[in-house]
Nucleic acid binder design. Structure first.
Lengths: 200, 200
DNA sequence: CCAGTTGTTGATCGTTTGATCACCTAAGGC
DNA sequence: GCCTTAGGTGATCAAACGATCAACAACTGG
C-alpha cells in the first residue's frame, strides 16, 4: 500500500510470536502500572499498537495477561548478592547498609514496579505479601543480625521496618502520589541509615 | 407482609432522606475502600441493603458519589489543634512529637482512610496531593522549626519526610499489604521519634 | 511466481456496566 | 378511613466490557 510520499506502508506487520508477545507484555506492564488492572483490554491494545483481538492469540484471558505482568515485574527483582554483600564484614556496617539501600531503591524505584506493587497490594494479591515476607525474613532480619554484631545492640523487627519504610516512602511519594522528591535518593538514604545507626 | 414467624416484615422501609443518604454514603466508603473506585454500583447497593436505582435518587452519578466519599474521608481528618500542641514549648520536644504522631496515626490508621487514600493516590486524585502538601507545609515544616529551636540543628524537609514515612509505613503494611503489625503503634512511634531526635 | 502457512484483523457475541423510567406503596395529615 | 406526598422498586436502555470467529494478507519454501 503506497502512502502519499511514495513509501510502502504495510497495514499489517508480521512479527515473530516471541517478539509480539514481548511487545504486548511490555505495553501491558506500562498500561496496568498507570491505570491499574481495571484498565480495559481495548485501551491496552491501542497503546500497544495492535488490535484487541490479537491479545487473545498470546494470552488466553485478561487474567493470564495480568499474571504475566506480575511475573515480569516481580521476578528477578531481588538480587541474591545483596544479602551476601550485607554480610561482608570487611566493609563497615554503615557503608554496607547505604550500599544495600542504594541498590535496592535503584531496583524498585521505577514507575512500573512501585505502582504495580501498590495496585496488587490493594487488590490483596498473595504474591505481594510473599514478596514482603521475603524482604522481612531474608533481608531485614539478617540486616538486624549485622547491626547487632557491629553495635552490640540488636534492633527489633519493628525498628527495621521503620528504617525500611522511611526509605521506601520516598518512592511512594514520587510514583504513587506524584510529589516532587530528590532525583537521587542516595543522600536521603545515607542520612536515614546514619540516624538509625546512631541510636543504641 | 407476614413472615413465617408471624412478625410483619415490610419489604420496603421508608427512611428520611438524610438517614438514607448517610447509610448509602457509609456503605460506599467501606465498599470503595475494599475494592477501589472501579467497584460496581450494583455490588455497592447490595452491600448497602438498597436497590441500585435508589443510589441515583441521592447521588446524580457514580462520580458524584465517589466525590462525596472523598469529602467524607478527607474532611476534618486533620485537627488544627495538633499544630498548636506541636508548638507548645512548655512540653519537651520529644513528648510533643510522640503525642502528635500518636494522635495523627490514631486519626488515619483506619481501614477506610488508608485504603481510600491509596486508591485515590494511584488514580492521581488532586485532593490527595493537596492533602500531602498540607501535611508538608503545615505540619512537617513547623515541626522542623520546633526541632531546630530545641536542638539547635534544623532538619531538612527530606529528613522530616523520612520520619513521617517510617511511621506511616506501619499503616501501609497493615491496611494496604495486610501484613501483621503491632496492635498499638505507640511504642514504634516513640522509638522512631527517639532515633530521629538523637541524631544531630 | 505461486501456493501454503500463519500472524493479524474487522465484525460480532453475550454479559455487565452506569443510568433512567413508569410505577408502586409506606407514612403523615385531615 | 382516606387521600396526598414522596421514598422506593423492577424493568429496561445504551454503552462498554471480555472474548470469539471466519476471513484476510504477509512471509516462506519451492
Amino acid at each position: 500500500m503506497p502512502a502519499l510520499d511514495g513509501t510502502v506502508v504495510p497495514r499489517r506487520r508480521r512479527l515473530e510470536p516471541e517478539a509480539r508477545r514481548e511487545q504486548i507484555l511490555a505495553a501491558a506492564v506500562a498500561w496496568f502500572a498507570e491505570v491499574g488492572f481495571a484498565g480495559t483490554t481495548r485501551d491496552l491494545a491501542r497503546r500497544a499498537g495492535v488490535t484487541q483481538a490479537l491479545l487473545y492469540k498470546y494470552f488466553a484471558s485478561k487474567a493470564e495477561l495480568t499474571e504475566a505482568v506480575f511475573e515480569r515485574v516481580y521476578l528477578g527483582r531481588l538480587d541474591p548478592r545483596w544479602l551476601d554483600e550485607l554480610r561482608d564484614r570487611r566493609m563497615p556496617l554503615h557503608a554496607r547498609l547505604c550500599r544495600f539501600y542504594r541498590q535496592y531503591t535503584a531496583a524498585i524505584f521505577t514507575y512500573e514496579w512501585m505502582r504495580i506493587f501498590m495496585w496488587a497490594g490493594l487488590a490483596g494479591d498473595a504474591l505481594n505479601r510473599r514478596y514482603l515476607g521475603h524482604v522481612g525474613e531474608r533481608l531485614l532480619a539478617p540486616m538486624g543480625q549485622e547491626i547487632a554484631a557491629a553495635t552490640g545492640h540488636a534492633p527489633g523487627m519493628e525498628d527495621l521496618w521503620n528504617l525500611h519504610g522511611g526509605i521506601v516512602y520516598i518512592g511512594i511519594r514520587r510514583f504513587i502520589y506524584r510529589l516532587p522528591t530528590p532525583e537521587d535518593p542516595g543522600p536521603a538514604i545515607d542520612a536515614a541509615v546514619a540516624r538509625f545507626l546512631r541510636a543504641p
